[in-house]
Write a protein that binds this DNA or RNA. Structure first.
Lengths: 71, 71
DNA sequence: ATAAAAAGAGCTGTATAATGCACTTAAGAG
DNA sequence: CTCTTAAGTGCATTATACAGCTCTTTTTAT
């Protein structure tokens, strides 16, 4: 997944769970500033930042083999 | 996956493909210093760095739901 | 249409990721 | 063992992620 897909997924799921950005910072420990930058596509986040956010959403980052397109 | 798992996986696959760290920098564009730090567990890499390395190995990072442990 | 809440942006400081160079240590081949 | 190559470390520099504050814009509800 490209970074844009990942951030979009995080954002959509955050909203699906009815969380505001503020509540998201409280639950994740990632600053509001960082979340805003990330969601508006203005950063190259560290692995830890993405992981802390994913965690709150019951998600995680996995390293996998690329699958051929027809999958 | 935790960072340690990810870096171990990258390292193992790099070796499996018979690549040295030097060759890995040439193919990925990530500096030798950064690869050394990463593989020896001394950094919190950016998404881009991980992606560039994974790319060379025909792998990628995916954001997924956590599965219950019995899977 | 207005008020309130949420999201985004500018400015700034601090921490640290990424980099290059030189050196040391470890691993492999002869 | 020695020689060669690969991997890891220390130090210094540069770039930038992270963070807090304030202000603006957008969205949502009344």
């Amino acid at each position: 997944m490209h970074l844009r897909e990942i951030t979009e997924t995080l954002k959509k799921r955050r909203k699906l769970l009815g969380l505001t950005q503020v509540r998201f910072t409280e639950l994740s420990g990632v600053s509001l500033r960082t979340i805003k930058a990330l969601e508006s596509g203005k950063s190259n986040p560290t692995f830890e930042t993405l992981t802390r956010l994913a965690e709150v959403l019951n998600m995680e980052l996995n390293l996998e083999f690329k699958l051929p397109k027809f999958f």
